[in-house]
Design a protein around this nucleic acid. Structure first.
Length: 621
RNA sequence: GCGCCCGUAGCUCAGUCGGAUAGAGCGUUCGCCUCCGGAGCGAAAGGCCACAGGUUCGAGUCCUGUCGGGCGCACCA
């Protein structure tokens, strides 16, 4: 609960003030308050006496005892007592649980806008398990940032002028094949791409010439329609995973909008960006990034080669200057209608500069979900953004604070092997999805054969299990993808949480069906078991804040597991006599209503946490 | 060589930005449906939190070093 802890901190601070020779010293005092371990008495505790022991030069346990005597418990706290050197508070169960249930789950709007870029798969083949982590992570981060009160725009960058797209498109002509009706377009293209790689050994000149020509056509935007076809096929996969986007950003449009040139003009005004007349960088445009990347052997980064060609980072910098509102001049139009009904927009040469109700870019923060191997180039983009911001702040202190957070996630290996598209050590997301849903369906059919919407449930469970497996541990952890582990339906998994949710919902359903004599809740009948559950629910806003601050979905996943575990434990709890003592529906009137309210809060909080991870919470499973 | 990340139970991972006797899942062993969903619950076993110093009343958490593993260090994208 939001205000109980500050109230407790204030009460403790007041007590300290009475104890100190210089009462003013207490004003700035930090009062740590934590939940007490399960085997210790009390609900919230503070180690405040430790810190005071030093300045007072006295035994902390003694100080704790004196503070306990001096403290005036705030509303909602029954009493405060010393437990050794700790100061533990017992909340008043009725008041506490009621307050937790009444507290809003939503965080207030921040007024900040965050652009989350993720997916950004090359438009030349089907997405594989390596991309899976990116998509799921990015999607969850977007949901979490939104829940934290920020305006969020999800961008998916389409590298339509790259070599990979060119190779795939050229392969169609080279092998002169037409896509089969029974194979997804991106899968078919991926196969041609691999075949072309093999054919290069036999016929290098023709292929090299052909690919180069396709690249030029791509740059001129002549093959837009062909690339769009690939992108649409890939989008079907992302949508099946539950991910949606706000805007596709095409590299050819970034270039056509002049962001490369204009970005370079912005950079050239910086003292860090120079054009050496001699030395190894003679004729090139370079940027000194030593301020941001200390310890580099070579602090100069080439932006434009001495031959005049721009490096890729330069394009990326231009793109990012637009993201944070330093450049404008892009055109947009609708691309697709996504499963939720949300329109997916795209940049487009024939689009409109203004779209009613949309203000693309102009973010205060950019989050880039890109694997850790890109850490270097990302740091360079970030350095460029920081440098331009610093330059602006010098003569205009209203310059927006724009920060780039590179969410660097580790790679996914496949059964211990490094993933490699070329070598064919790869696994398509579509195949994994199919298998996940198939396995989930078998379990659902076994456990709940009479379930009405069995296919929907199997999908929710299968996809949920997969997403959860990608999200439950930190991004910087290497994930080795293994079937039985990723699709586990037991233990630390989405189905475990979903099951807890469905169980709560089934109680609430039964209650509403039997709603004959509804009493007013008797909050005072609640006890310590309910407090433990409510304490977890009360953490939710803090969990969202922390997860958003660090762009760390695993924080939410771990919370969902904790809450589900606590709820399952409560549900199965037995009293000293060995009999269940937490029955909800069969509890006495009054207590029953209070418990029902708590169960509803459990269910809603579980559903909310799962939704932040993009995991559905079926009412039955 | 330089830089970043990781080292916690047999395996896979958490650990509330320094607090109480380090927690889960999987696996192993033993229990629990005359009771609201057993995809569940309870219990047992399993740990020099890589190692060595340091800071602190207090270190898995912060600092330094060592060892082991991963990744990155282009006028490539």
């Amino acid at each position: 609960m939001a205000d109980l802890i500050p109230a407790l901190q204030n009460a403790l601070r007041d007590a300290v003030r009475r104890l100190l020779p210089e009462p003013a010293d207490a004003d700035a005092l930090e009062v740590p308050v934590l939940r007490v371990p399960d085997d210790k008495p009390g609900d919230y505790g503070s180690p405040i006496a430790f810190g005071l022991a030093k300045t007072l030069r006295r035994n902390p346990a003694q100080i704790a005892a004196e503070l306990a005597a001096a403290v005036v418990p705030p509303e909602g706290v029954a009493r405060v007592e010393a437990v050794g050197p700790y100061l533990n508070a017992y909340v008043d169960p009725g008041a506490f649980v009621r307050a937790v249930i009444a507290a809003p789950l939503d965080l207030p709007p921040s007024g900040r806008k965050v652009v989350v870029e993720h997916t950004s798969v090359n438009p030349n083949k089907e997405a594989h398990v390596g991309h899976l982590r990116n998509i799921v992570l990015g999607d969850a981060v977007a949901r979490i940032e939104r829940a934290a009160g920020h305006r969020v725009e999800v961008q998916n960058y389409i590298d339509d002028t790259g070599r990979q797209a060119a190779e795939s498109l050229f392969a169609i002509r080279y092998f002169d094949e037409t896509p089969p009706a029974d194979e997804k377009y991106d899968h078919w293209l991926g196969r041609l791409y691999v075949r072309l790689g093999e054919a290069k050994e036999r016929d290098p000149e023709t292929i090299e010439r052909g690919v180069a020509e396709v690249m030029h056509r791509l740059e001129r935007g002549e093959l837009r329609h062909e690339v769009e076809r690939i992108v649409r096929a890939q989008l079907a996969t992302y949508h099946a995973l539950g991910a949606e986007y706000d805007l596709l950003v095409w590299e050819s449009d970034v270039v056509a909008a002049g962001f490369l040139q204009r970005g370079l003009e912005v950079l050239e005004r910086l003292p860090h960006v120079t054009r050496p007349a001699e030395g190894k960088f003679a004729g090139a445009l370079v940027m000194d990034v030593s301020e941001f990347l200390p310890g580099l052997e070579e602090p100069q980064v080439v932006l434009v080669r001495s031959g005049g060609n721009a490096m890729y980072v330069a394009k990326d910098i231009g793109y990012h200057l637009w993201k944070v509102g330093r450049l404008a001049g892009m055109a947009y139009r609708a691309f697709d209608r996504q499963p939720s009904g949300h329109t997916l927009w795209t940049t487009h040469p024939d689009g409109a500069a203004e779209i009613e109700g949309h203000d693309f870019g102009h973010a205060q923060q950019a989050v880039n979900v890109i694997d850790v191997r890109q850490a270097h180039p990302q740091a360079i983009v970030r350095a460029a953004l920081e440098l331009t911001r610093a330059a602006d702040a010098a003569d205009d202190d209203t310059a927006a604070e724009a920060v780039l957070h590179h969410l660097a996630y580790e790679v996914v290996t496949l059964e211990g092997q490094a993933m490699s598209g070329r070598k064919g050590v790869t696994l398509a997301i579509d195949a994994v999805l199919e298998e996940a849903v198939r396995r989930a369906r078998a379990v659902v059919a076994d456990k709940q054969p009479d379930l009405p919407a069995i296919d929907d449930v199997a999908r929710a469970v299968g996809v949920g299990a997969l997403r959860f497996a990608m999200l439950k541990s930190e991004a910087k952890r290497v994930i080795d993808f293994r079937w039985e582990q990723a699709l586990s339906l037991a233990g630390d998994s989405a189905p475990y949480v979903q099951y807890a949710h469905a169980r709560a919902d089934s109680i609430l359903r039964a209650a509403s069906e039997a709603a004959a004599a509804v009493r007013a809740a008797d909050w005072d009948a609640l006890g310590p078991l309910e407090v433990k559950l409510a304490q977890l629910i009360a953490r939710y806003p803090e969990v969202v804040r922390n997860a958003a601050h660090d762009d760390a979905p695993h924080v939410v996943a771990q919370f969902a597991l904790d809450l589900a575990t606590a709820w399952n434990g409560y549900y199965n709890h037995r009293g000293p006599d060995g009999r269940p003592d937490t029955a909800v529906l069969r509890a006495e009137p009054g207590l029953r209503e209070a418990r029902l309210a708590l169960v509803a809060a459990v269910r809603d909080t579980l559903a909310r946490a799962l939704s932040l991870l993009g995991v559905e919470a079926p009412r039955q499973m």
